[in-house]
């Protein structure tokens, strides 16, 4: 499927938190179906960049364009973009007072206008996809971290997004649960989903990424294919970062 506009187009993006400049002149284009992995030291602005794309943070200058829609203060543009963009958080952010199945159907029923029956059918298909259909009636707190994150992914997919954003989806997980979540994300990648993933899981990056981005102090310092990135990093900062991270 060829689309005229790229999935995400970010141009000269700048963002401040008060006096503090978090994002400095970010330029990034993500094509439909492309998988981009972002890494970089803590505080370098990775989360902020990803959160700007669906307006969880507001940028002060530059433009963000998602599938042909420019992100402005107009609630319509925000709603339009959010309907195309799913997001998975480090802390899962499941709704603790609702069952797993209710977590999944809340958006489809209220935002897409699906009937409860349709929403449930869709939700069960996705729970099967993330391999936990048997947990449908449990509360999130009764699940393991890995299961919770898979529910969160399914909840996002229920909205049939065209782009998925992942902000360190495995950082809050016990080591033995990381692969079950990464498997789901890789499966999604193989399906052709456009993805922006903030992660320090370099094994995953090698497997899934089309492009690697290294951020430091609010700037994109390096950008390239995983091969270039891992074998011949251009900057010292990136080399040091990779060395530190791959030691673990």
């Amino acid at each position: 499927m060829v689309s005229l506009s790229p999935a995400i187009n970010i141009n000269n993006l700048n963002k401040w938190f008060g006096e503090f400049k978090v994002l400095k002149d970010i330029n990034l284009t993500v094509q439909e179906g492309e998988k981009v992995v972002i890494c970089g030291p803590s505080g370098s602005g990775k989360s902020t960049l990803v959160r700007c794309i669906n307006r969880l943070e507001m940028h002060q200058s530059g433009t963000i364009n998602v599938r042909g829609t420019e992100l402005t203060n107009d609630p319509k543009s925000i709603a339009e973009i959010r309907s195309d963009v799913g997001m998975v958080f480090q802390q899962f952010n499941l709704f603790p007072h609702l069952s797993v199945i209710q977590n999944l159907t809340l958006g489809p029923i209220n935002a897409l206008g699906l009937s409860e029956k349709e929403a449930k059918e869709r939700a069960f298909l996705l729970l099967e996809r993330v391999k936990i259909p048997e947990q449908a009636n449990k509360r999130p707190s009764q699940l393991s971290g890995g299961q919770q994150q898979r529910v969160a992914i399914a909840r996002s997919l229920c909205m049939e997004p065209k782009i998925m954003l992942f902000d360190e989806p495995t950082s809050a997980l016990d080591p033995e649960m990381i692969s079950e979540v990464l498997d789901v994300i890789i499966d999604l990648a193989n399906d052709g989903m456009t993805m922006v993933v903030v992660t320090h899981e370099m094994g995953f990056a090698r497997k899934a990424a089309d492009r690697m981005i290294f951020m430091d102090e609010g700037k994109i310092v390096e950008i390239g294919t995983p091969n270039e990135f891992f074998e011949t990093p251009k900057t010292d900062r990136c080399r040091i970062f990779l060395k530190q991270i791959l030691q673990h």
């Binding site: 969880l56 709603a79 959010r82 709704f95 958006g107 209220n110 935002a111 909840r155 229920c158």
Partner: peptide, 14 residues
Amino acid sequence: QKGQTEAAQTVGLN
């Protein structure tokens, strides 16, 4: 937590 509002927004709730 703020994450609850954010999650609700990302699944399209007004």
